[in-house]
Write a protein that binds this DNA or RNA. Structure first.
Lengths: 197, 197
DNA sequence: TTACACATACCGACTGGTTAGTCTGGCTGT
DNA sequence: ACAGCCAGACTAACCAGTCGGTATGTGTAA
């Protein structure tokens, strides 16, 4: 039996990534020592450096996972067969729910970019930009069709909405008065209302 | 002649605070050593610890300054003699312009809260809450008067707007296609449009 | 006016503690 | 016996904060 799953059923790399995600979100990247991570994962440094090249690498994996998931979900909603208002609303609400479901990821995402090495940072920015552009395309489509106002450049509208998504990790607390879905519906509604012609 | 101003006309505490603000924004709090700060300010550690109790204290000063300035500006706009739509629009646009004019502050503000000591953190949160509530009161006033939609709770609307304000430090770059005032007008416009009944 | 005391402003070497990453070696299944 | 998997002691670097010391200005009293 390989050691990769001893302790519980989760493979060691996963356990390390989960522990790192939680700790990075709770304490910040710099305040989290590699020692803490391996202890939380129930292994030692040898294991960590066997699977990951550096502490920085671990952080990069968090970004890669978030970006992959969000891009897939956006593609799903944007590619549906429905009026653009509905596709935008669904996509906008979905990213809110997904973000709330993974608040730790969101916390890290917008707080720790500058801890990535320059080339990893660049890579993450490029990926994020693709996401941004996909979202913007949806808005521009609606603007061309005349169902969305053209008063504000689509770029700015995207930043407006994602600002609020980003901000979720600052104020949303599970157990608050609103469920993730209710928050998502409200925020998507605000976006669509702002876009009314 | 006291040493407080030798070198140039700026007093040493100011020079230290300016250097710290810039470096914290550029590299993050943990990545900035006290040595770097004192070198950038043209003094030594002795001077820093003469005026400030700790590195953490320096960060706290940044927060205190931002909170004081923003609260004063909000009070000014909210207290004017004008319809609530205009007061809200002006306040919403002003915070955008002020934030862009001090992007370093904004960068630090939302990225470094967790680097403050627990009691300083609590203090900052309390101050920030007062600000949030003042802004919310404006929206609620408009909702009572019937000029703003009540579809979304005022609290959420505030977080929606300030999300986009925080986000500015992530995407806005001086020299971009839009002036600070143009960005502010657009973002205030989006807010007001979302609030149309 | 001079002399002495005292405070403020600052210098910079030093200390105690922490950290990311390395490396040697052992275990386990095939 | 070989290869992937991992343990844990070790190292080299770094950093916040301290502390004894120096310089300059200000008040006071002879």
């Amino acid at each position: 039996m390989p050691r990769t799953t001893d302790g519980d059923g989760t493979p060691v790399p996963q356990r390390l990534l989960n522990a790192a995600t939680r700790l990075f979100a709770e304490q910040g990247y710099d305040r989290t020592s590699v020692q803490e991570i391996v202890e939380a994962a129930g292994v030692t440094k040898g294991a960590l450096y066997h699977y990951f090249g550096s502490k920085d690498d671990l952080l990069h994996e968090v970004y890669a996972r978030v970006l992959r998931v969000q891009q897939e979900r956006l593609d799903h909603f944007a590619g549906m067969d429905a009026p653009v208002e509905k596709r935008l609303r669904d996509a906008a609400a979905d990213v809110v729910v997904t973000t709330i479901d993974n608040l730790d990821d969101a916390m890290i995402f917008f707080r720790s970019m500058h801890h990535l090495s320059p080339e990893k940072n660049k890579q993450v920015r490029a990926e994020r930009r693709r996401y941004h552009e996909r979202f913007r395309a949806l808005i521009e489509e609606g603007q061309r069709e005349g169902v969305f106002s053209t008063a504000t450049p689509a770029d700015l509208v995207v930043d407006y909405h994602f600002g609020s998504v980003h901000h979720l990790s600052t104020w949303y607390r599970p157990g608050g008065p609103l469920t993730p879905q209710q928050v998502a519906d409200h925020l998507a509604d605000l976006l669509l209302r702002a876009l009314r012609p």
